[in-house]
Amino acid sequence: MIRQDRMREFAARFALMLVVYAGFATREPSYYHVAGIASLLDGAFLTGVIALGVGLTMVAGEMDLSVGSMAALAGVLSIKLETFGVLPALVASTALAALVGAAQGWFIARLRINSLIFTVGTLIAFRGFALLLAGEQTVNIPIADLDATDFLSAHWLFLSPLGGLLIVVALLIFGLTTFTSWGREIYAIGGGRTEARAAGVSVRRPLVLAFAMSAGLAGLAGAVMSLQSDSATPLGYDAVLLDAVTVCLIGGVALRGGRGSVVGIMIGLFTLRFLVSGIASLGAPFWAQSLASGVLLISLILAEGGYAFLRRRRSFAGVGGLRGGMS
């Protein structure tokens, strides 16, 4: 029964994504042209990669609020390290971010700290480190090295390095959560931490892994975007957390933990991108994009709440009828 409900929910979210896409594709031909598809994938990269990481912490029953600051810090660091090469800068920035994220997860698990409170502190701290490293100003790649990052803006048909990297990250997270015991442990502690402990499931390991992946993916996204644009600002990416959480919620990730999937997150990502890009293509102001995203999310939450309410009423009615028949 639960599996059937999940399949219905998945189908409904997928249908919503198609409706949003079709609604704008009929008015904007670029939606089904190669250049339009490439632009949509590029625009989805930053939010998508960070949402995949944040989604892991949400599935674990926690939340990483520091991803925007981590992306900014990794972006500044990658620009500073670009003199050693683009690839070393990306690897170093991502690895350092993942290491710091693992430390966050360890402290949260070991000391049983509320992740919302703890990552508010690290959000502020990471932003401060980014400002310190950048000297409180935008940092740029030296003019002599500008050609080194040109490949990040290249396109092959509808795919660019950004779009390809988004797909690779999604496949890796899908493999982690579907085929490994470590990935299944993240769902186990999110579904019921007390029950997971009673079953002998480690709480520390999945939390360390979830926060390491969240911070590492935020670092990767911030570094790639900064290198592509040849500059980084320590105050950048301040709004990406809200977009990432919105994507996860649209994709069916539960705030209480234990529920969510990579496929759902990708559906949520492209639903939001189709909506925002479609409204922008019509020449609407930025507030209209924000308003439409909020209305979509609220409508989904109300629909889920209404469906759950009706299911509870049916269950109670069934129990009452059964008791009446027995008496």
Results as ranks from 00 to 15, higher is better:
Pro142Asp: 14
Pro142Arg: 10
Ile143Lys: 15
Ile143Gly: 15
Ile143Val: 14
Ile143Met: 13
Ile143Ser: 15
Ala144Asn: 13
Ala144Asp: 15
Ala144Leu: 13
Ala144Ile: 12
Ala144Cys: 06
Asp145Glu: 15
Asp145His: 15
Leu146Val: 11
Leu146Asn: 07
Leu146Thr: 11
Asp147Arg: 15
Thr149Asn: 12
Asp150Cys: 02
Asp150Asn: 14
Phe151Trp: 15
Phe151Tyr: 13
Phe151Ile: 11
Phe151Ser: 12
Phe151Cys: 09
Ser153Asp: 10
Ser153His: 05
Ser153Arg: 14
Ser153Trp: 03
Ser153Gln: 11
Ala154Met: 11
Ala154Pro: 02
Ala154Leu: 11
Ala154Trp: 11
His155Asn: 15
His155Ala: 15
His155Phe: 12
His155Cys: 07
Trp156Lys: 09
Trp156Gln: 12
Trp156Asp: 10
Trp156His: 13
Leu157Val: 13
Leu157Asn: 12
Phe158Met: 14
Phe158Gln: 10
Phe158Ile: 12
Leu159Asn: 05
Leu159Cys: 02
Leu159Ser: 05
Leu159Arg: 01
Leu159Ala: 11
Ser160Lys: 10
Ser160Asn: 07
Ser160Ile: 09
Pro161Tyr: 10
Pro161Lys: 08
Pro161Ser: 09
Pro161Gln: 09
Pro161Cys: 08
Leu162Lys: 14
Leu162Pro: 01
Leu162Asp: 01
Leu162Ser: 07
Gly163Ala: 11
Gly163Gln: 10
Gly164Gln: 03
Gly164Thr: 03
Gly164Trp: 08
Leu165Gly: 01
Leu165Phe: 05
Leu165Val: 06
Leu166Glu: 04
Leu166Val: 07
Leu166Ser: 07
Ile167Cys: 02
Ile167Met: 08
Val168Lys: 02
Val168Phe: 10
Val168Ile: 13
Val168Tyr: 01
Val168Ser: 04
Val169Gly: 01
Val169Cys: 01
Val169Ala: 03
Ala170Asn: 03
Ala170Cys: 06
Ala170Pro: 05
Leu171Val: 02
Leu171Gly: 02
Leu172Phe: 09
Leu172Gln: 06
Ile173Asn: 01
Phe174Ile: 03
Phe174Gln: 02
Phe174Thr: 02
Phe174Asp: 03
Gly175Asp: 01
Gly175His: 03
Gly175Phe: 01
Gly175Tyr: 00
Gly175Leu: 05
Leu176Arg: 04
Leu176Phe: 14
Leu176Val: 03
Leu176Trp: 10
Leu176Gly: 00
Thr177Gly: 07
Thr178Leu: 03
Thr178Glu: 05
Thr178Ile: 00
Phe179Val: 05
Phe179Arg: 10
Phe179Ala: 05
Phe179Pro: 00
Phe179Cys: 00
Phe179Glu: 02
Thr180Arg: 06
Thr180Gln: 04
Thr180Asp: 02
Thr180Lys: 06
Thr180Val: 04
Thr180Ser: 09
Ser181Asp: 12
Ser181Cys: 04
Ser181Gly: 09
Trp182Pro: 00
Trp182Ile: 09
Gly183Leu: 06
Gly183His: 04
Gly183Asp: 05
Gly183Tyr: 06
Gly183Gln: 03
Arg184Asp: 03
